[in-house]
C-alpha cells in the first residue's frame, strides 16, 4: 500500500492523518502543497524527520521546485522524485490510498 498526500500540513490534517495510519516501512509520496511537510526549518521539521525514519518518504520534485525549494532544502531521508519515478513507485508499491 502506497499513501499519497497533497495538502500543506499547515493548512490541513491530511499528512497527520496519513502518518497515523501508515505502517512502518510504508511508502508515502508528497506532492502539490504537501511538499511543505518536508522542507527544512519549519516548526514541523521533527515530524518530517521522524516520518522519514519510519517510512519511505518521497517528494515530487516539480512541485517542490515550483514552490521555490530544491532537493537540498528537504529533510534528510526524504527522496526527491519526478513524475516517472512516481509512476514506478505506484507500480511497485500500489494500491494507493490518497489522503485528501
Amino acid at each position: 500500500m502506497l499513501h499519497t498526500v497533497n495538502k500543506s500540513p499547515f493548512e490541513r490534517n491530511a499528512f497527520k492523518a496519513c502518518l497515523a495510519r501508515a505502517k512502518e516501512g510504508s511508502v508515502i509520496v508528497l506532492f502539490e502543497d504537501a511538499v511543505y511537510a518536508v522542507t527544512r526549518g519549519t516548526t514541523l521539521e521533527k515530524i518530517a524527520v521522524r516520518a522519514a525514519e519510519k517510512f519511505h518518504v518521497f517528494v515530487l520534485g516539480p512541485d517542490l521546485n515550483a514552490r521555490g525549494y530544491d532537493w537540498g532544502q528537504v529533510v534528510e531521508g526524504v527522496t526527491v522524485v519526478d513524475y516517472d519515478d512516481f509512476v514506478d513507485i505506484v507500480v511497485t508499491h500500489g494500491p494507493v490510498t490518497a489522503w485528501l
Partner: peptide, 26 residues
C-alpha cells in the same frame, strides 16, 4: 480526477501523472 481545472492542481497533477504512465509504457 475529482476537481475542476484551474481552481486546484488536481487536474494538472493527474495529467502529468497520466503522461508519465503512458511514457513508461503502461
Amino acid at each position: 480526477v475529482n476537481e475542476g481545472p484551474f481552481n486546484h492542481q488536481a487536474s494538472d497533477s493527474a495529467y502529468k501523472f497520466t503522461e508519465a504512465v503512458l511514457r513508461k509504457g503502461h
